[in-house]
Simulated scan of single mutants.
Amino acid sequence: MHAPSAKHLTDAQRLSWLRLIRSENVGPRTFRNLLNYHGGAAAALDALPDLARRGGALISPKICSVSDAEREIAGIEKLGGRLIALGEPEYPSALAAADGAPPILSVIGNLECLSRPMVAIVGARNASAAGRSFAARIARELGDAGFTISSGLARGIDASAHEASLSTGTVAALAGGLDRIYPPENVPLLARIVENSGAGLTEMPLGWEPRAQDFPRRNRIIAGLAMGVVIVEAALRSGSLITARLAAELGREVMAAPGSPLDPRCEGSNKLLRDGATLIASSEHVIEALSGMLGRNLPPAALPVLAEPEHDMPPPVPNGEVRARVEELLGPSPAAVDDLIRMSGAPARLVHLILLELELAGRLDRHAGGRVSLIDRL
């Protein structure tokens, strides 16, 4: 089955998409479910208050206004950036294939570098001179071999990888808005990336100051952009190991450079090797590890509809009995959605709709592996 050909959103659709993803309790998976049920973002926006009420919300979720969305678009354009929607030709194809891909990306810089195969290089912020030198050499050589290098603009290994691949193309995934760069000391580095055929991108709104919980979200984008992730010097508790785990969950190649067993900065990367990551000591090792993936398109996730068709009939409304059966099966411990469907005996479409309503009401958490749990509101 062939994927639908990529097309651009109209200005009206782009505005509705931005309003929907910026509305309260709407994340990437919720966004996709809303479009699947309502055929388009405009219809989904109209349905949000009723869906949240049916899910048990006492107050309707805050919906992003037209003026706020228009202000964000104008602010991004003033910075020289633009919004790219999932399903549009410029959207990075590897990221589009990732579960939970952001519906909207704010991008500044050269879009062409997003179309080439990417390798992510991440590691310790307090990296050693040897680690930084190794990351730079790998990044430079992979760039010369035709890869775009992606990383997180952090101090240490990330910055070294970006610096070394400026001339060949590098992408910085950001944890805050395009105008809220972290760390501030790397603002000049991002400017050089953009000036030298690279790009910066984020799923976060303009003006968003990055918080601690936003960095794992950024790491998910780094992993999703790349065919494989190279870890250089990572401690046992580090964002780099989160990136490696997310990459493995997406079916991407996880690679690590061996480090001294006496250096705590290498404990995490050495553990990855013990757990089965590919050992790399040169750019040739990286290319060899990725050889089976080169030229092979990743299967795209089910993309939201860009044409915004209208349904002949509104989505079904679950009756009280079905809703009670599903909610009774939910609790604070994550449960597989497939189990909820099987045990409730309800049609899958209705179960998914009930979960969507609960999520919009702020009562449901989604977890990795298609699992969900109720949020204790006491």
Score class of each variant (00 low, 15 high):
133 S>V: 00
313 M>D: 14
221 I>A: 02
53 R>F: 09
311 H>M: 09
132 R>C: 12
376 D>S: 14
38 H>F: 15
57 A>E: 08
140 R>A: 15
135 A>M: 09
45 L>V: 07
85 A>H: 02
229 V>F: 08
246 L>N: 04
31 F>G: 03
282 S>Q: 06
43 A>I: 06
374 L>V: 14
22 R>Q: 10
151 S>C: 08
225 L>W: 09
119 V>C: 11
103 P>F: 02
183 P>T: 09
191 A>N: 12
132 R>Q: 14
213 Q>V: 06
263 D>P: 06
342 R>K: 15
317 V>C: 11
105 L>C: 03
112 E>G: 00
12 A>M: 07
84 I>F: 01
45 L>H: 05
93 S>F: 13
103 P>E: 05
219 N>W: 05
257 A>N: 05
131 G>A: 12
193 I>S: 03
262 L>C: 12
202 T>A: 09
181 I>D: 02
188 P>Y: 13
102 P>H: 08
76 I>R: 05
184 P>V: 11
192 R>G: 02
60 S>Y: 02
348 A>W: 05
232 V>F: 03
41 A>R: 01
142 L>D: 03
51 L>A: 02
378 L>S: 11
317 V>Y: 13
353 L>W: 07
116 R>D: 08
70 E>H: 08
47 A>Q: 09
102 P>Q: 07
270 N>E: 12
222 I>K: 03
289 A>W: 02
227 M>A: 13
146 G>V: 10
300 P>L: 15
71 R>M: 10
172 A>C: 01
357 E>T: 00
39 G>F: 07
52 A>H: 05
247 A>G: 06
151 S>A: 03
129 A>P: 00
38 H>K: 05
270 N>I: 12
220 R>Y: 03
48 L>V: 11
271 K>N: 13
14 R>L: 15
68 D>E: 14
365 D>E: 15
355 L>D: 04
143 G>C: 03
276 G>T: 14
205 P>Q: 01
46 D>M: 09
138 I>R: 03
